[in-house]
Amino acid sequence: MNTKQNRILLIDDDEPTNFMSKIIIQKADENSIPSVMQNPKSALNILKNESINIEEIPDLIFLDINMPSMNGWDFLDEYKDLEIHKRKNILLYMLTTSMNDDDDVKSKKYSCVNGFMVKPLTVKSYSQIVNKHFK
């Protein structure tokens, strides 16, 4: 029987974090396929591409806040207006190292943000997301 695959896009410039996140995601849910983009600008270019197949569009994006050059907030400013939202509902969680009050308030201003998670991703925390959205 074909169970639906969940395409997870990790946008984070930190290699060790991505290395670990991929392992955690695959461990927590065998139907989750993680992929990594270290450069948010490249991620935006892909999402802007109208010829992208609907299966290639991620189901969930984990977005790091603290990135050099274009940071998470800069990314959101462009991401929120993309046409791609009309084709598919993409979940988005912001990843941060600290539960700063400001960040939480800020993330609520963007309706495309589903939530806010503290790094590092754990099997437990990722499983909660899987149970909430993918089951």
Binding site: D13, E15, Q38, N39, P68, S69
Partner: peptide
């Protein structure tokens, strides 16, 4: 601590 480029 603000940087514009990746560590790599």
């Amino acid at each position: 601590f603000q940087r514009l480029h990746n560590k790599n």
